Simulated scan of single mutants.
Amino acid sequence: MINGLEIYKKKWNIETDRSIKPGLQAITAALAELNNPHQKGYFIHIAGTNGKGSTGAFLAAILRKHGLTVGNFYSPNIEDLHDQIQVDGKPVTEEEMDSAMARLSKLETPLTDFELLTAAAFLIFEQKKPDITIMEAGMGGRFDSTNVIDPELAIITSISYEHTNFLGHTLENIAWHKAGIIKKWKPIIIGQLPEAARNIIENEAKMLHAELILPEKQIDIELKLKGRHQKENAKLALEAAKEILLLKFNHDMAENALAGATIPFRFEEIYPNLVMDGAHNEASIKALVETIKEQYPGRPIHIVMGILKDKEYTKILRHLETVSDHFTFVDFENERALPAKTLFSENRSKIKTIVKYYDILPVPNKKEVTLVTGSLYLLSNLRNNHFEMFENYRIQKK
């Protein structure tokens, strides 16, 4: 579900397939009809189970600090589809999206929702001409609709179990999909990967004569984005910036950019005693649990959770139960959402309840830290319903 897309489809009478159909045939044909906008730019491609958005935000911040204009294609959205397509940190406007959709409405090739949004992104980047565009893969990599580009550099942030019904049930299968973004003779930067996954990536890189780069230097600066995993993401972005900027790279400017970089819903305090984090799979939940212990030692934690039905919610609950015995489960507006009653029945905590997602605010217990997690779609719904409250607090914090 891409929030806001239906409005444009209805306005421009565009029919799409809302299912997920990995493959490049349709998007390639559609882009050919549009005179191949994806071939007119300098691209960086990012894939990975977790860390794609943060790494892209870190890298964009460094490049902008060096005077470059930077496009970003994120997945999924925070508020709606406009923030998935950004130039210099500013979401695409309704007018720019209308212009893209007007052209897309004339396509003869039928597309899925995500393919349509990807094509719109390429048209907008073609029109706005950023110096560098950072494309985040939606799912996997090899057959993801973003993989029509020939990037100057690729990054694989992490590999763990995700979307197993599409990507396969082993780390080797999943790594094979991620490895599809590696291009011949172009460098590939990788994060800390499990050995089984790393072997697949190394073999693909060797076959394509792609230089494999593993950053070694630690990041010692204080980041706004909290957690040990964010320092790993920052390290990847720093290495990528060095590859892109070469002699123009300034380490002090890069570190200054990293220190100030932010992205919504990455352990973000959006109101006093209320933190939102978009962790939604076992690996990211493990990182979240570590960050909770690091940031709030000794504080009672109240977990508010909603999640999609295709996630490993039982394993996720077991990890979260190590830092909290107070849970609230919520139903939220998404056709793929897992019923809150399922989470309630699987949960082992002492205190648990079910509420409508908009009933969790305001936070009544000042001793507790309330942490909302499980799905970016849930967090997006909450932000949209309480936008004015959250924005006022964000401005006050500045």
Rank of each mutant, 00 (worst) to 15 (best):
I155R: 04
I156G: 11
E152M: 14
D150G: 06
D144N: 06
S145I: 02
E152C: 14
G141T: 06
G138H: 04
T164I: 11
I156Y: 03
R142E: 12
P151K: 09
E136T: 03
H163G: 06
M139K: 07
E162T: 02
I134V: 10
N165Q: 15
D150T: 15
A137L: 07
R142H: 08
T133R: 02
S145Y: 05
F166S: 11
I155N: 02
N165Y: 10
S158T: 14
E162A: 13
M139F: 07
S158L: 05
T146H: 02
N147L: 08
G141L: 10
T164R: 13
P151S: 02
T133F: 09
S160W: 01
N147I: 09
T164C: 14
G140Y: 03
I149N: 09
I149C: 10
M139G: 07
N165C: 13
F166A: 07
E136F: 03
N147V: 08
A154C: 12
D144V: 00
G140I: 00
T157N: 05
I159E: 13
R142N: 12
F143A: 14
T164L: 09
T157H: 04
A154L: 09
A154F: 06
N165S: 15
Y161S: 11
I155L: 13
G140D: 08
G140P: 12
G141M: 04
